[in-house]
């Protein structure tokens, strides 16, 4: 058991290492480098040399990678090009803002997805299922930028209920942020919730068709007791991993949604830094987003390990 946990953590770290390599190499082969981009036409002679020295670009690539990696582990991602600010400071409030947005979407999305998934599975092919499934198909296929645009058009412009575009400084307090995030959260949560609901549905249906559920019925177990004791624990276990993947996928949706709503989070930073060719920031973003992805999956793996009696005793039996 302990061995399995350690193994998963190690695998996660290896993944992060490969990601850092990929992004490092990726940014390395961009035409030009940080200094030529920054200095633009003055990129020659003394000034270029000075810039190289300042950014440490005058040493071989692998040395730069090592020193970058060592610093990154300590949370130091160097300086951003555009603002000449430490990236750490640029990122801090942005991460907070995005985290608020994403976790709101997750905390609203997961319970709704569970309820919808279970309801559609238990009333399979009946009216609630047909109605909800039709809605989820639409919610699942419409890109975030379309649902976000429509939300702004209908709720903010036509009905004037909520602000459409977020116009707040980056380091705004949580309370001030709140009314602004309602529409973005809906836009993000919609697609994710729809996906998860469909997964929960099929998992529950699969378990409902199992022999042990049939046995529970034949044992005289009342319906709802059967659902909660015999069906859901077994149906939701495999869903955990899939839900984790969905959440990780949502990171992409966050980027688009933040742009639509002009929300001061990581996503908008991604677009800004890429447009500005701010490579140190891009590298930092890549590694941060990847570690979020890796840790969500790790968490899901560990949860499955803890909850599955089969895996729990696997080690003992072998």
């Amino acid at each position: 058991m302990l061995f399995l946990i350690i193994k998963r953590i190690l695998l996660g770290l290896i993944t992060l290492f490969i990601v850092s390599l990929i992004t490092f190499v990726g940014t390395e082969i961009l035409p030009g480098d940080a200094c030529t981009t920054y200095l633009e036409r003055q990129a020659f002679g003394e000034q270029l040399e000075a810039c190289y020295r300042r950014l440490g670009l005058n040493v071989p690539a692998y040395e730069r990678y090592v020193s970058w990696a060592v610093n990154a582990i300590q949370g130091d991602f160097g300086y951003s090009l555009s603002g000449e600010m430490p990236i750490k400071e640029v990122l801090g409030p942005r991460i907070k803002n995005s985290l608020v947005l994403a976790s709101a979407a997750i905390f609203i999305g997961i319970p709704i997805a569970l309820i919808l998934g279970i309801v559609t599975a238990l009333w399979r092919d009946k009216l609630p299922d047909v109605a909800i499934s039709t809605v989820t198909i639409f919610a699942m296929t419409i890109p975030e930028f379309i649902s976000a645009t429509l939300l702004i058009l209908i709720i903010a412009i036509w009905l004037e209920w909520l602000p459409g575009i977020v116009i707040v400084p980056t380091d705004v307090s949580l309370l001030e942020l709140l009314p602004n995030i309602i529409l973005p959260v809906i836009a993000i949560a919609m697609i994710m919730t729809a996906h998860m609901a469909r997964m929960v549905r099929s998992s529950v249906i699969q378990v409902m068709a199992s022999e042990y559920v049939q046995m529970a019925i034949l044992k005289g177990v009342p319906y709802w007791k059967m659902v909660f004791k015999h069906v859901l624990p077994n149906a939701l276990l495999p869903a955990i991993n899939v839900v984790a993947l969905t959440i990780a996928w949502l990171l992409g949706g966050v980027v688009v949604t933040e742009v639509v709503f002009n929300y001061p989070g990581l996503g908008r930073l991604v677009i800004e830094s890429i447009s500005n060719r701010d490579l140190p920031t891009v590298q930092a973003l890549a590694i941060i987003l990847a570690s979020i992805y890796v840790s969500i999956n790790l968490l899901a793996d560990l949860m499955t390990l803890m909850l599955n009696p089969r895996l729990k005793t696997l080690q003992i039996r072998k």
Partner: peptide, 22 residues
């Protein structure tokens, strides 16, 4: 599969933006 996993863990949008800007 490790390598594929690593590619998976970079959000697609970041990866695509990088490639396109490159």
């Amino acid at each position: 599969m490790r390598i594929v996993d690593a590619f998976l863990s970079i959000p697609w949008i970041l990866a695509m933006l990088l490639i396109v800007s490159l």
